[in-house]
Computed example of a mutant assay.
Amino acid sequence: MKLDTYDIRKVIHYYYAKIQETNHPYYWYCLAETQSRAGLTNEALQTIDNALSFPNPYPSKLELLDMQLNLQTVLSREMNLNRTVIVTSKQGDINGDGTKDNVFLTANKTPDSPFWRNITLVIQNGRTNQYEQVQMKNNAGYNPTLFLGDFTGNKGEGILVVIDTGGSGGSIYAYVFSYLNGRLLTIFNSDTFNETFKYDVNYENQYKVKLNSYYLKERYILDLTYKDKEYLSEIYNEEGVLKAPIEGWVNPLSGLYPVDYNRDGIYELEAYQRIAGRYNADSLGYVQTVLKWNGQAFVPDRQNVAIFGRGI
Protein backbone atom coordinates (compact mmCIF):
# COMPACT_ATOMS: atom_id res chain seq x y z
CA MET A 1 0.00 0.00 0.00
CA LYS A 2 1.32 3.41 -0.97
CA LEU A 3 1.61 5.86 1.91
CA ASP A 4 1.17 9.60 1.55
CA THR A 5 3.58 12.10 3.09
CA TYR A 6 1.57 12.44 6.30
CA ASP A 7 1.37 8.66 6.78
CA ILE A 8 5.11 8.28 6.18
CA ARG A 9 5.90 10.92 8.79
CA LYS A 10 3.65 9.10 11.26
CA VAL A 11 5.30 5.74 10.58
CA ILE A 12 8.81 7.19 10.86
CA HIS A 13 7.87 8.92 14.12
CA TYR A 14 6.48 5.62 15.42
CA TYR A 15 9.70 3.74 14.70
CA TYR A 16 11.81 6.49 16.27
CA ALA A 17 9.67 6.19 19.40
CA LYS A 18 10.04 2.40 19.48
CA ILE A 19 13.82 2.71 19.04
CA GLN A 20 14.03 5.11 21.98
CA GLU A 21 11.87 2.74 23.98
CA THR A 22 13.52 -0.60 23.14
CA ASN A 23 16.54 0.02 20.84
CA HIS A 24 15.66 -3.26 19.16
CA PRO A 25 17.36 -4.13 15.81
CA TYR A 26 13.96 -4.92 14.31
CA TYR A 27 12.83 -1.28 14.59
CA TRP A 28 16.08 0.02 13.12
CA TYR A 29 15.43 -2.17 10.09
CA CYS A 30 11.80 -1.05 9.82
CA LEU A 31 12.88 2.58 10.05
CA ALA A 32 15.47 2.13 7.29
CA GLU A 33 12.94 0.41 5.05
CA THR A 34 10.38 3.18 5.56
CA GLN A 35 12.96 5.90 4.89
CA SER A 36 14.00 4.08 1.73
CA ARG A 37 10.40 3.86 0.51
CA ALA A 38 9.99 7.58 1.23
CA GLY A 39 13.03 8.44 -0.90
CA LEU A 40 15.08 9.52 2.12
CA THR A 41 18.18 7.75 0.83
CA ASN A 42 20.81 9.44 3.00
CA GLU A 43 18.73 8.98 6.15
CA ALA A 44 18.13 5.32 5.31
CA LEU A 45 21.86 4.73 4.86
CA GLN A 46 22.58 6.27 8.26
CA THR A 47 19.91 4.08 9.84
CA ILE A 48 21.41 0.96 8.23
CA ASP A 49 24.81 1.90 9.68
CA ASN A 50 23.20 1.94 13.12
CA ALA A 51 21.41 -1.35 12.46
CA LEU A 52 24.68 -3.00 11.42
CA SER A 53 26.29 -2.02 14.73
CA PHE A 54 24.28 -4.70 16.55
CA PRO A 55 25.94 -8.09 17.14
CA ASN A 56 22.87 -9.79 15.62
CA PRO A 57 21.23 -7.28 13.28
CA TYR A 58 17.73 -7.84 11.95
CA PRO A 59 16.87 -9.51 9.59
CA SER A 60 20.51 -10.40 8.95
CA LYS A 61 23.79 -8.68 8.30
CA LEU A 62 23.80 -9.95 4.70
CA GLU A 63 20.34 -8.54 3.96
CA LEU A 64 21.22 -5.19 5.48
CA LEU A 65 24.43 -5.00 3.45
CA ASP A 66 22.46 -5.80 0.29
CA MET A 67 19.97 -3.07 1.17
CA GLN A 68 22.85 -0.68 1.80
CA LEU A 69 24.41 -1.46 -1.58
CA ASN A 70 21.12 -0.85 -3.39
CA LEU A 71 20.65 2.49 -1.65
CA GLN A 72 24.23 3.54 -2.42
CA THR A 73 23.55 2.78 -6.09
CA VAL A 74 20.41 4.92 -5.95
CA LEU A 75 22.33 7.73 -4.27
CA SER A 76 25.08 7.55 -6.87
CA ARG A 77 22.51 7.80 -9.66
CA GLU A 78 20.86 10.79 -7.98
CA MET A 79 24.21 12.53 -7.65
CA ASN A 80 25.12 11.86 -11.29
CA LEU A 81 21.69 13.01 -12.40
CA ASN A 82 22.11 16.38 -10.72
CA ARG A 83 25.81 16.90 -11.41
CA THR A 84 26.56 19.41 -14.15
CA VAL A 85 29.50 18.52 -16.36
CA ILE A 86 31.22 20.07 -19.36
CA VAL A 87 30.13 18.17 -22.46
CA THR A 88 32.34 19.98 -24.97
CA SER A 89 34.36 23.18 -25.22
CA LYS A 90 35.99 25.49 -27.78
CA GLN A 91 38.13 28.62 -27.75
CA GLY A 92 37.58 31.64 -29.95
CA ASP A 93 37.21 35.41 -29.99
CA ILE A 94 33.45 35.61 -29.50
CA ASN A 95 32.99 39.34 -28.88
CA GLY A 96 35.65 40.57 -31.31
CA ASP A 97 37.90 42.20 -28.70
CA GLY A 98 40.98 40.32 -29.88
CA THR A 99 41.10 37.98 -26.86
CA LYS A 100 40.29 34.28 -26.96
CA ASP A 101 37.20 33.37 -24.97
CA ASN A 102 36.27 29.95 -23.59
CA VAL A 103 32.99 28.46 -24.78
CA PHE A 104 31.39 25.45 -23.10
CA LEU A 105 28.31 23.32 -23.31
CA THR A 106 27.38 22.04 -19.85
CA ALA A 107 24.64 19.53 -19.06
CA ASN A 108 23.39 16.83 -16.72
CA LYS A 109 24.08 13.27 -17.83
CA THR A 110 21.32 10.70 -17.64
CA PRO A 111 22.70 7.52 -16.00
CA ASP A 112 23.28 4.61 -18.39
CA SER A 113 22.20 6.72 -21.36
CA PRO A 114 23.74 9.13 -23.89
CA PHE A 115 20.85 11.52 -23.21
CA TRP A 116 21.77 14.96 -21.82
CA ARG A 117 19.49 17.31 -19.87
CA ASN A 118 19.71 21.03 -19.08
CA ILE A 119 22.18 21.70 -21.88
CA THR A 120 23.49 25.23 -21.34
CA LEU A 121 25.84 27.46 -23.32
CA VAL A 122 28.49 29.04 -21.09
CA ILE A 123 30.92 31.72 -22.27
CA GLN A 124 33.93 32.78 -20.21
CA ASN A 125 35.20 36.18 -21.28
CA GLY A 126 38.92 35.83 -21.93
CA ARG A 127 39.65 39.40 -20.86
CA THR A 128 37.55 39.65 -17.67
CA ASN A 129 37.18 35.91 -16.82
CA GLN A 130 33.49 36.56 -16.18
CA TYR A 131 30.96 33.87 -17.12
CA GLU A 132 27.77 34.29 -19.13
CA GLN A 133 25.18 31.53 -19.27
CA VAL A 134 22.77 31.23 -22.18
CA GLN A 135 19.65 29.10 -21.81
CA MET A 136 18.15 27.40 -24.84
CA LYS A 137 14.47 26.55 -25.24
CA ASN A 138 15.24 23.02 -26.41
CA ASN A 139 17.93 21.98 -23.96
CA ALA A 140 17.79 18.19 -23.88
CA GLY A 141 18.91 15.58 -26.37
CA TYR A 142 21.86 13.64 -27.70
CA ASN A 143 25.35 14.48 -28.94
CA PRO A 144 25.42 18.25 -28.29
CA THR A 145 28.16 19.91 -30.35
CA LEU A 146 29.81 23.32 -30.74
CA PHE A 147 31.21 25.10 -33.78
CA LEU A 148 32.80 28.56 -33.75
CA GLY A 149 33.03 30.67 -36.88
CA ASP A 150 32.22 34.08 -38.32
CA PHE A 151 28.64 34.03 -39.60
CA THR A 152 28.01 37.78 -39.78
CA GLY A 153 31.29 39.44 -40.80
CA ASN A 154 31.47 41.40 -37.53
CA LYS A 155 35.00 40.13 -36.69
CA GLY A 156 33.82 38.07 -33.72
CA GLU A 157 33.16 34.36 -33.99
CA GLY A 158 29.59 33.14 -33.77
CA ILE A 159 28.56 29.99 -31.93
CA LEU A 160 26.66 27.14 -33.58
CA VAL A 161 25.04 24.65 -31.20
CA VAL A 162 23.49 21.46 -32.58
CA ILE A 163 21.67 18.81 -30.52
CA ASP A 164 20.20 15.55 -31.84
CA THR A 165 16.59 15.14 -30.72
CA GLY A 166 16.65 11.36 -30.97
CA GLY A 167 13.38 11.37 -32.91
CA SER A 168 12.61 8.92 -35.70
CA GLY A 169 12.99 11.61 -38.36
CA GLY A 170 16.58 12.37 -37.36
CA SER A 171 15.70 15.96 -36.49
CA ILE A 172 17.95 18.35 -34.60
CA TYR A 173 17.76 21.42 -32.41
CA ALA A 174 20.10 24.12 -33.68
CA TYR A 175 21.03 27.62 -32.54
CA VAL A 176 23.47 30.26 -33.73
CA PHE A 177 24.57 32.98 -31.32
CA SER A 178 26.60 36.06 -32.19
CA TYR A 179 27.61 39.34 -30.59
CA LEU A 180 25.91 42.23 -32.38
CA ASN A 181 26.26 45.78 -31.07
CA GLY A 182 27.81 44.48 -27.87
CA ARG A 183 25.02 42.00 -27.09
CA LEU A 184 24.94 38.24 -27.53
CA LEU A 185 21.90 37.47 -29.67
CA THR A 186 20.26 34.34 -31.03
CA ILE A 187 20.46 34.85 -34.79
CA PHE A 188 19.20 31.41 -35.81
CA ASN A 189 17.06 28.80 -34.13
CA SER A 190 15.59 25.64 -35.57
CA ASP A 191 12.07 26.26 -34.27
CA THR A 192 11.74 29.46 -36.29
CA PHE A 193 13.25 27.78 -39.33
CA ASN A 194 10.79 24.89 -39.14
CA GLU A 195 7.86 27.27 -38.75
CA THR A 196 9.00 29.36 -41.72
CA PHE A 197 9.84 26.70 -44.29
CA LYS A 198 6.63 24.83 -45.05
CA TYR A 199 6.02 22.28 -47.80
CA ASP A 200 3.53 19.85 -49.21
CA VAL A 201 4.45 16.59 -50.88
CA ASN A 202 2.12 14.70 -53.23
CA TYR A 203 2.62 11.62 -55.38
CA GLU A 204 1.55 12.08 -58.99
CA ASN A 205 0.91 9.82 -61.96
CA GLN A 206 3.82 8.54 -64.05
CA TYR A 207 6.14 7.87 -61.12
CA LYS A 208 6.57 11.43 -59.92
CA VAL A 209 6.32 13.33 -56.65
CA LYS A 210 5.50 17.04 -56.54
CA LEU A 211 7.01 19.10 -53.72
CA ASN A 212 5.87 22.69 -53.16
CA SER A 213 8.11 25.00 -51.13
CA TYR A 214 5.75 27.73 -49.95
CA TYR A 215 8.20 30.19 -48.43
CA LEU A 216 10.24 30.40 -51.62
CA LYS A 217 7.23 29.76 -53.88
CA GLU A 218 9.09 27.07 -55.78
CA ARG A 219 8.03 23.65 -57.05
CA TYR A 220 10.16 20.55 -57.43
CA ILE A 221 9.34 17.36 -59.30
CA LEU A 222 10.99 14.18 -58.04
CA ASP A 223 11.43 11.27 -60.44
CA LEU A 224 10.70 7.94 -58.75
CA THR A 225 11.83 5.68 -61.57
CA TYR A 226 15.02 4.94 -59.65
CA LYS A 227 12.90 3.07 -57.09
CA ASP A 228 12.65 -0.70 -57.46
CA LYS A 229 9.71 -2.38 -59.20
CA GLU A 230 8.22 -3.73 -55.99
CA TYR A 231 8.01 -0.24 -54.49
CA LEU A 232 6.44 1.25 -57.62
CA SER A 233 3.97 -1.61 -58.11
CA GLU A 234 2.55 -0.99 -54.63
CA ILE A 235 1.71 2.58 -55.61
CA TYR A 236 1.04 2.58 -59.37
CA ASN A 237 -0.84 0.35 -61.78
CA GLU A 238 0.75 -0.94 -64.98
CA GLU A 239 -0.04 2.33 -66.78
CA GLY A 240 1.79 4.37 -64.15
CA VAL A 241 -1.42 5.72 -62.63
CA LEU A 242 -1.71 6.09 -58.87
CA LYS A 243 -3.83 3.43 -57.21
CA ALA A 244 -4.77 5.93 -54.50
CA PRO A 245 -3.75 9.48 -53.52
CA ILE A 246 -0.59 9.59 -51.39
CA GLU A 247 0.78 12.52 -49.42
CA GLY A 248 4.28 12.67 -48.05
CA TRP A 249 5.91 15.36 -45.94
CA VAL A 250 9.14 17.19 -45.23
CA ASN A 251 10.67 16.55 -41.82
CA PRO A 252 11.95 19.28 -39.51
CA LEU A 253 15.56 20.36 -39.75
CA SER A 254 17.82 17.29 -39.70
CA GLY A 255 21.20 18.86 -40.44
CA LEU A 256 22.78 22.32 -40.25
CA TYR A 257 26.29 22.75 -41.57
CA PRO A 258 28.56 25.82 -41.69
CA VAL A 259 30.05 26.19 -45.17
CA ASP A 260 32.13 29.10 -46.46
CA TYR A 261 30.90 28.97 -50.04
CA ASN A 262 32.44 32.29 -51.07
CA ARG A 263 35.79 31.61 -49.38
CA ASP A 264 35.59 35.02 -47.74
CA GLY A 265 35.90 33.81 -44.14
CA ILE A 266 32.16 34.20 -43.50
CA TYR A 267 30.14 31.03 -43.10
CA GLU A 268 26.80 30.35 -44.69
CA LEU A 269 24.45 27.74 -43.22
CA GLU A 270 23.39 24.72 -45.24
CA ALA A 271 20.15 23.28 -43.88
CA TYR A 272 18.95 19.75 -44.62
CA GLN A 273 15.38 18.50 -44.31
CA ARG A 274 14.51 14.93 -45.16
CA ILE A 275 11.61 14.24 -47.53
CA ALA A 276 9.41 11.32 -46.45
CA GLY A 277 7.05 9.40 -48.69
CA ARG A 278 4.46 6.96 -47.38
CA TYR A 279 6.17 6.66 -43.97
CA ASN A 280 9.21 8.14 -42.29
CA ALA A 281 11.62 5.41 -43.36
CA ASP A 282 10.46 5.86 -46.97
CA SER A 283 13.00 8.57 -47.67
CA LEU A 284 12.71 10.33 -51.03
CA GLY A 285 15.61 12.76 -50.67
CA TYR A 286 16.47 16.05 -49.00
CA VAL A 287 15.53 19.69 -49.28
CA GLN A 288 18.80 21.64 -49.06
CA THR A 289 18.56 25.34 -48.23
CA VAL A 290 21.60 27.62 -48.12
CA LEU A 291 21.10 30.51 -45.69
CA LYS A 292 23.16 33.70 -45.83
CA TRP A 293 23.40 36.54 -43.30
CA ASN A 294 22.05 39.78 -44.78
CA GLY A 295 23.01 42.06 -41.89
CA GLN A 296 19.82 41.45 -39.95
CA ALA A 297 18.87 37.80 -40.39
CA PHE A 298 19.69 34.57 -42.17
CA VAL A 299 17.79 34.49 -45.45
CA PRO A 300 17.66 31.80 -48.14
CA ASP A 301 20.33 32.24 -50.78
CA ARG A 302 19.25 29.18 -52.77
CA GLN A 303 17.36 25.95 -52.36
CA ASN A 304 17.71 22.56 -54.03
CA VAL A 305 16.23 19.12 -53.75
CA ALA A 306 18.56 16.11 -53.80
CA ILE A 307 17.35 12.58 -54.46
CA PHE A 308 19.03 9.23 -53.97
CA GLY A 309 20.70 7.40 -56.82
CA ARG A 310 20.60 3.75 -57.81
CA GLY A 311 23.41 1.47 -58.86
CA ILE A 312 24.06 1.08 -62.58
Rank of each mutant, 00 (worst) to 15 (best):
Met1Cys: 10
Lys2Gln: 05
Ile8Asp: 08
Tyr15Ser: 11
Tyr16Trp: 07
Tyr16Ala: 13
Lys18Phe: 06
Gln20Tyr: 13
Gln20Trp: 06
Glu21Asn: 10
Thr22Pro: 07
Asn23Arg: 13
Pro25Ile: 07
Tyr26Cys: 02
Tyr26Arg: 14
Tyr27Thr: 11
Trp28Gln: 08
Tyr29Trp: 07
Cys30Leu: 11
Gln35Pro: 12
Thr41Trp: 07
Leu45Asn: 13
Thr47Ser: 00
Leu52Ala: 09
Leu52Asn: 08
Ser53Gly: 03
Phe54Ile: 06
Pro55Leu: 08
Pro55Thr: 06
Asn56Pro: 11
Lys61Gln: 12
Lys61Ala: 09
Lys61Cys: 04
Leu65Glu: 15
Asp66Arg: 14
Asn70Glu: 10
Gln72Arg: 13
Leu75Arg: 12
Glu78Lys: 11
Glu78Cys: 07
Met79Leu: 09
Arg83Leu: 15
Thr84Lys: 06
Thr84Tyr: 03
Val85Met: 14
Ile86Ala: 12
Val87Cys: 10
Ser89His: 09
Gly92Glu: 05
Gly92Met: 06
Asn95Ser: 08
Gly98Lys: 01
Lys100Thr: 15
Phe104Ile: 06
Leu105Asp: 04
Lys109Asp: 15
Thr110Ser: 06
Ser113Lys: 06
Phe115Trp: 15
Leu121Thr: 01
Gln124Tyr: 05
Asn129Trp: 10
Met136Leu: 08
Asn138Gln: 12
Ala140Val: 04
Leu146Trp: 11
Gly149Val: 09
Asp150Tyr: 04
Phe151Gln: 03
Phe151Arg: 02
Lys155Ser: 13
Gly156Gln: 01
Gly156Glu: 03
Gly156Tyr: 02
Gly156Thr: 02
Glu157Lys: 08
Ile163Phe: 03
Asp164Arg: 00
Asp164Val: 06
Gly169Ala: 10
Ser171Cys: 11
Ser171Gly: 12
Ile172Phe: 01
Tyr173Ala: 00
Val176Ile: 14
Tyr179Lys: 04
Arg183Met: 10
Arg183Trp: 07
Thr186Pro: 14
Thr186Gly: 10
Ile187Trp: 01
Ser190Ile: 01
Asp191Pro: 03
Asp191His: 06
Asp191Trp: 05
Thr196Gly: 04
Lys198Asp: 09
Asp200His: 13
Asn202Pro: 02
Tyr203Thr: 02
Gln206Cys: 05
Tyr207Gly: 00
Val209His: 01
Val209Tyr: 01
Lys210Leu: 13
Asn212Thr: 15
Tyr214Gln: 08
Tyr214Thr: 14
Leu216Glu: 07
Leu216Tyr: 07
Leu216Gly: 01
Tyr220Phe: 15
Leu222Val: 13
Asp223His: 11
Thr225Glu: 09
Tyr226Leu: 10
Asp228Gly: 06
Glu230Ile: 00
Tyr231Gly: 02
Tyr236Met: 08
Asn237Val: 05
Lys243Ile: 15
Lys243Thr: 15
Pro245Val: 02
Glu247Phe: 14
Trp249Met: 04
Asn251Val: 14
Asn251Cys: 14
Leu253Asn: 02
Ser254Arg: 05
Gly255Val: 01
Pro258Gln: 05
Ile266Arg: 03
Tyr267Phe: 12
Leu269His: 03
Leu269Arg: 01
Tyr272Cys: 01
Arg274Gln: 13
Ile275Ala: 04
Arg278Lys: 11
Tyr279Val: 06
Ser283Val: 14
Ser283Glu: 14
Thr289Tyr: 02
Thr289Glu: 05
Leu291Trp: 01
Phe298Ser: 02
Phe298Trp: 00
Gln303Asn: 10
Ile307Ser: 11
Phe308Val: 00
Gly311Ile: 09
